[in-house]
């Protein structure tokens, strides 16, 4: 795996630096407010799930955290630094990495080259072209593929892999990049429950063993409460609740997923979520 020695701020004893500190964050697309005055702070090594309806602003929030989007107002600090202001690519990719949805892989390239792409911030052009064109494999990429159970399919084109396999390739890419803060947008959305648990277990192992922080949007509240330390409910761009996973209740989720108009819709939404929540 890539070296973890770098110049990132270490938590000192007087005032520990949060892995992720967000203050008064807002973002507007034109007239629509995608993220509305969000503030929270996440400790190192924590796994935090964002839950909420699609369109609630989770993806935008995650993209702001990685520095891909500049927020309209407010601040983001990852280990004391604003990711949007780090111009050195190698340094930024060691600080934060985003696991994208599977649509964001290059479908014409093999699985292992898609994983190699996690190294592009640290490789110079010659090295990246050599790994692309020559038949040598990059051992950490192969190890990352092995850890998601895909080493046998390393040379397969991504377009020939199933949805779940593609998602695992995306996870392997972020594993090989090995950032301090792993941001994941629906990392297990198209996986069957066993595989989803395996992969979230893998993220947990990395978070614990290497003291990495994981922030992920999760579709399924059951998985969120089982595998994460803390669950943040996002609704209409704002934080509706922010609780330890074990304190999550049906009522919170019912309100989070409640439809905007009409009480009847809200009731049926709650019933549907109640079924989902048998597992808690």
């Amino acid at each position: 795996m890539a070296t973890t020695e770098n110049t990132l701020a270490k938590p000192d004893q007087d005032r520990p630096v949060a892995a992720c500190r967000i203050e008064g964050l807002s973002h507007r697309h034109g007239t629509r407010t995608a993220v509305d005055n969000v503030s929270f702070s996440i400790e190192r090594g924590q796994m935090v799930a964002l839950v909420g309806q699609s369109g609630a602003g989770k993806t935008t929030l995650l993209r702001i955290i990685t520095g891909m989007i500049e927020p309209s107002s407010g601040s983001v600090e990852l280990l004391g630094r604003d990711p949007g202001k780090i111009s050195d690519l190698a340094e930024r990719t060691r600080l934060v990495g985003m696991m994208q949805q599977r649509l964001d892989l290059v479908s014409q390239l093999s699985a292992r080259h898609n994983v190699d792409a996690g190294m592009l911030g640290r490789w110079n052009l010659l090295k990246s072209l050599a790994y692309l064109a020559l038949p040598f494999t990059h051992p950490p990429s192969m190890a990352a593929l092995a850890s998601v159970g895909l080493e046998a399919r390393a040379n397969e084109r991504v377009s020939r892999l199933s949805g779940g396999e593609q998602q695992r390739v995306a996870l392997a890419r972020v594993l090989v990049q090995d950032p301090q803060v792993i941001v994941a947008d629906e990392p297990v959305a198209s996986l069957d429950p066993d595989l989803a648990s395996d992969l979230l277990g893998l993220l947990r192992k990395i978070a614990t063993e290497r003291d990495r922080t994981v922030i992920a949007s999760i579709h399924d509240p059951v998985l969120a409460s089982r595998h994460f330390d803390r669950v943040i409910g996002v609704r209409e761009g704002g934080v509706q609740f922010d609780v330890p996973a074990e304190a999550l209740t049906r009522e919170m989720l019912g309100q989070l997923y409640e439809r905007k108009t009409g009480n009847g819709d809200g009731d049926s939404g709650e019933a549907a979520d109640g079924r989902l929540l048998w597992g808690i």
């Binding site: 990685t66 964001d104 892989l105 290059v106 014409q108 911030g121 052009l125 692309l132």
Partner: peptide
Amino acid sequence: PEPLASLRASGASAFEVLAYGRIPASAA
């Protein structure tokens, strides 16, 4: 555009985005 944005987020330079993203997508 999505795979290209993802490559840039992994720290790829414009030339690397070309080699890893744009050329494979248009080669065929």
